[in-house]
Nucleic acid binder design. Structure first.
Lengths: 214, 214
DNA sequence: ATTCTCTTTATTGGATCCAATTTAAGATAT
DNA sequence: ATATCTTAAATTGGATCCAATAAAGAGAAT
């Protein structure tokens, strides 16, 4: 009998994925120390895959490591939040511009279906589904490096989202903007789509900032 | 007595830095397998810091890892080269736009001094000095996430640079464009500076593409 | 000769062990 | 009572050991 589902294959990746999710979800708060032994026990593995997972998450910017002093959950602040959304606007508008000429109806249908889920799913699923909606459209641009970059920015943004999500009536407007974006995509109207996306991301940033304590 | 200078502190970082440099320099060719034991012996450390270093470089995109089959130097191709330079234009023009209002004369002087070195230094130093020149200007924008992103893109681009650098009379034009960029910065002319930077990066991409075998 | 299978070998992934460093606590002096 | 020095506990970094997997090679059957 296995312990926590970490076993079976690629423990490093497994531990990294679970830790990342717990950091994004806010279960592990910013600044909280991440003791190797504790994590190892919790997942039923040795300290080694934990060490590699922490190293990986450090490279992704979710944890900070200090030599001989261990790892902790990376800090968050308003400045970083603003920067993430600036970078999202830049990268995602560019991706969308190049995706639109390559968009198939079937891909737009898939995005619309995800948007359908998004509108009925519980609020905890918002971050992941929202990311899938956006990525589904962008993937048509066929730029792996750019897509990986955007994916990371979404994960980074989701840390703030989970903090703010409760007092947020943001979801309603977000849904409307997603529908507008899909319509522009169906028309293959790159200029309009880009403009909708830009304000969509900027407004998301502002809403999160307003909900951020401090 | 120590072996290869890897000891002393933070072996993982040390090994990662040296491997990264050897990949960028082209000493380690694309696709070449990276055997843990071999690298460990070469640097006089055990396999463990090597494993963590490889994991780090994987996250940075310089090596590819397949479960139970080991690591190899990441592939390069024309498509990736083009993507890197697209992303550079996007990120660096944005960084420069926000840096220019914050530029001090002393910072511009520092960039000019680096450009001076660049024009006399041996060709092997071009990549590193070129990066320092650009980063010195951008740092004024005070956006750590963006700067880290740009830094990584420069390293990725340098892999192609080292391949092409020999048959390249690119350096002369690059120097002229750097001088023009500095002049625009001194005038605090954001629009002109951005335009110079955009063509500067685009032309670099084209020159590298032309020199790429295949 | 070729292909398939079995065995051997090389190599990675994970666990445990040891050393070095940092943090915390406790004793002592002022 | 406070500050400082000494010592002990906790924790990380690195090395070695063992197990699991995949590549390579030898041998047999067609």
């Amino acid at each position: 009998m296995q312990t926590a589902g970490a076993k079976g294959r690629d423990q490093t990746r497994s531990v990294a994925d679970q830790l990342r999710e717990r950091i994004i979800s806010g279960e592990l708060a910013a600044g909280q120390p991440l003791r190797q032994e504790t994590i190892a026990e919790a997942y039923g593995v040795s300290r080694m895959p934990v060490r590699e997972a922490l190293r990986l998450l450090q490279a992704e910017g979710f944890v900070e490591m200090v030599r001989n002093r261990g790892a902790s959950v990376a800090a968050i602040d308003a400045r970083d939040l603003a920067e993430i959304h600036e970078m999202r606007v830049l990268a995602e508008c560019f991706a969308l511009r190049h995706a639109i000429p390559e968009l198939t109806e079937s891909r737009i249908d898939r995005a619309e279906s995800i948007q359908g889920e998004l509108e009925t799913a519980p609020i905890e699923a918002f971050g992941a589904l929202n990311k899938r909606f956006h990525m589904t459209l962008y993937e048509a641009c066929a730029r792996p490096r750019l897509l990986a970059h955007i994916s990371l920015l979404h994960d980074a943004a989701d840390r703030y989202l989970r903090i703010a999500i409760r007092q947020l009536d943001y979801a309603v407007r977000s849904d409307r903007e997603h529908r507008e974006l899909l319509a522009a995509c169906r028309r293959r109207d790159a200029a309009a789509a880009q403009e909708i996306l830009r304000t969509h991301i900027e407004e998301a940033g502002k809403a999160l900032l307003a909900a951020l304590p401090g």
